[in-house]
Amino acid sequence: MKLTKEQVLNTARLARLDIAPQDVEMFSEQLASILGYMEKLNEVDTTGVAPTSHAISLTNAFRQDRAHEHLPRDKALSNAPEKDEDGFLVPKVI
């Protein structure tokens, strides 16, 4: 099984990855082998087994509705590539 060029490019677009044209073939094969590995799971008969939504069998972890200390703004902004004193800056959207 191999992924089509369109499938590779669409996956790249959804992940916002810039793929060089000469690499499409390589990713097509690599992705196919990952998916092939997952295919193996389809060989198991899961009739009557509820889908697993979580790896551990715990439920209901809650937090009470009480506020904590906030992160100081300069810390919140410290990793941002573009910022001003109030917040994050991004290329103009709209």
Partner: peptide, 14 residues
Amino acid sequence: LIHDGSLPVSHVDL
């Protein structure tokens, strides 16, 4: 998002 009137940027308030 607050769009800047004069600069080509948008301000993000989280």
